[in-house]
Design a protein around this nucleic acid. Structure first.
Lengths: 147, 147
DNA sequence: ACAATACTGGATAAACTTATCCAGTATTCG
DNA sequence: CGAATACTGGATAAGTTTATCCAGTATTGT
């Protein structure tokens, strides 16, 4: 339902949000997110172009969030890498009924709208804030950093 | 967001539901649904295996609904051709936290659950019944059949 | 300035989805 | 039975998404 690219982008953003102070290198992100590094690199490029993250080159470079975590929604991330395509006109191309969707496509689009709404109202900060049984959560401990 | 295959399957089912009495041939369905016939054929095979439709061979053969339109949900159709993959365990494979999803994946799965619920509670009959401004609707006039 | 680091962009390959084709088999009708 | 119809299943091709590789460029710290 969601593409790999979306999944990867969200993982990367959450990882960045979890470590807001220091830029994270592609390799480092690849490690914690378990995303193939070369591909993650492409995904990060997309996020960079959308200005959701900032790229810093050179020594001590890497990526950091372009805005505070509470100002970046999941929807923006999705839109940056693989936009949800709302159904705006009849996919059959019937111009018979102008812009009115048939019931089938109305229903499908309604589902898309729901997802959009849910994602649009959730920020990276929301995701990180969620209390999760105190167990170290799936994406990326907030502190971490062993030897 | 939804695959072509899902889109095609739904179109075909709605078309079948609109003409419940006579079996519809692949070519006929391809025409009204505007789906490439050879591919539609494959999709219909999937629907047949799921017993959502019945295949009749030979002269006057074709496909018909396997059950009344008000007993087939959109979700069943989706499941037959391209199941919604709910997120049940951490995609990162971290067994650290057993079966608890991290907040990110909980959120994503919640969106999937919403779609599932919406689709699970909508039948083909619902789709056809929807009052659509009396304009001939996108998929398939109920009567039709010109020369 | 130099060397090391790290992102950028383009080219390429692998995997999967979508689309096509065809020979085989079952069914209806005369 | 014979001929026409129509689904079935397997093989193949085209198109997208996912993944990899590498040379180029910018940045940092010495």
């Amino acid at each position: 339902m969601f593409t790999q690219t979306v999944e990867y982008a969200l993982r990367a953003l959450v990882a960045l949000a979890a470590q807001p102070d220091t830029p994270q290198t592609t390799r480092g992100l690849a490690k914690v997110t378990k995303v193939p590094a070369p591909y993650l690199s492409k995904v990060l490029q997309l996020l960079t172009r959308a200005e959701l993250v900032l790229a810093h080159r050179g020594v001590r470079g890497g990526f950091s969030l372009g805005r505070p975590a509470d100002e970046i929604t999941i929807l923006e991330a999705v839109t940056a890498v693989d936009p949800i395509q709302r159904i705006k006109t009849c996919p059959l191309g019937l111009k018979a009924h102008g812009k009115h969707l048939c019931p089938l496509h109305k229903k499908m689009d309604a589902a898309l709208a729901e997802v959009e709404a849910a994602f649009g109202s959730t920020t990276l900060a929301d995701v990180l804030a969620e209390p999760t049984r105190s167990v170290p959560l799936c994406p990326f401990p907030r502190v971490a950093k062993p030897a």
